[in-house]
């Protein structure tokens, strides 16, 4: 009991320079319920960069994200966060280093939107960064465009609105690594673009953003690097133009995929052949 209640000293995070690895997995293998979900995956997550994880259903995108968050400890290989094995950090220390947006956003009690966003500041309670709370909350709410319903109860919002509130909570956490699991799934076109613009902006400010996406055009338009997962393994990693090719995508998705050049020179357009 005394061990359980004793406060432990938390190691504060220090900023990692641009382009350096903030998190990494090396040779990671994960077996869940007897099935090999991830097989020998090695990937660096670098600061100042948006990294998109794409691939068909069941390819292991969310599992790879769980390895990065520390929710799953790989049976084989290692996962690192800020230069240490992910599991060596306490929950509180991890929360100062990475923020996670889950696919499923639930709330068991009817907190208001402001209260939910303010929960993102919990890791900094009792540290000097607690002073930034108000500014961080206001900024995150503005960026995620949820100011208009700040005082509504979370459980009265629509799916898309909830997703944006959850995003605001993650942004308010102000960590250098941000992991987003399908943040655009419930959103309209404008807000999809907004979320990825926010991701770009965080990368420009020196943070690292990992985002799981189904829309390959979003990945092509916004990601610095794209990692394509297929059957639990990494099929390819690199810039959008290197990775998102007709051959690779057709093979991975087992569906004919066309990759077209944009007429005005923007990111390539990816279309399934119909």
């Amino acid at each position: 009991m005394s061990r359980l209640l004793a406060p432990r000293r938390r190691r504060m995070p220090s900023r990692i320079g641009p382009g350096e690895a903030v998190a990494a997995v090396r040779g990671a293998g994960v077996v869940l319920g007897g099935a090999q979900i991830l097989h020998d995956v090695s990937l660096d997550v670098r600061t100042s960069e948006v990294l998109a994880l794409v691939g068909p259903n069941g390819a292991g995108k969310s599992t790879l994200l769980s390895v990065l968050t520390g929710d799953i400890r790989p049976e084989k290989g290692t996962a690192e966060l800020c230069g240490r094995a992910t599991h060596e950090w306490s929950a509180a220390e991890s929360a100062m280093r990475r923020a996670v947006l889950l696919q499923q956003v639930n709330l068991s009690f009817p907190f208001t939107v402001v209260e939910v966003v303010a929960m993102g500041r919990a890791p900094w309670a009792g540290t000097e960064r607690e002073n930034d709370d108000e500014a961080a909350i206001a900024e995150a709410m503005a960026v995620a465009d949820v100011g208009a319903f700040a005082e509504r109860r979370f459980n009265t919002l629509s799916g898309g609105e909830r997703a944006r509130v959850a995003l605001a909570r993650v942004l308010a956490q102000r960590t250098q690594l941000v992991l987003l699991d399908e943040p655009t799934a419930a959103l309209d076109l404008h807000h999809q673009e907004m979320v990825l613009a926010v991701a770009r902006q965080r990368a420009a400010a020196g943070d690292a953003v990992v985002v799981v996406l189904h829309d390959l055009n979003l990945a092509a338009g916004y990601a610095d690097r794209v990692a394509v997962l297929s059957r639990g393994a990494l099929a390819s990693v690199g810039s959008a133009s290197e990775v998102l090719t007709s051959e690779l995508l057709s093979d991975v998705y087992t569906h004919d995929v066309e990759v077209l050049k944009h007429p005005r020179g923007a990111a390539p357009i990816i279309l399934p052949r119909r």
């Binding site: 009991m1 359980l4 209640l5 968050t69 929710d71 306490s90 929950a91 509180a92 220390e93 991890s94 929360a95 100062m96 990475r98 923020a99 996670v100 889950l102 499923q104 956003v105 639930n106 709330l107 068991s108 009690f109 907190f111 209260e115 939910v116 929960m119 993102g120 919990a122 890791p123 309670a125 956490q173």
Partner: peptide
């Protein structure tokens, strides 16, 4: 109290916000 607020986001999300969910649960149950 504050950890309990975070727990309403679910075990996983609470853990991502730095709550030691297992410890919280056993202390609360005792």
């Amino acid at each position: 109290a504050r950890s309990l607020d975070l727990l309403s986001l679910g075990d996983k999300a609470a853990r991502h916000l730095g709550v030691n969910v297992e410890r919280l649960r056993i202390v609360a149950i005792v």
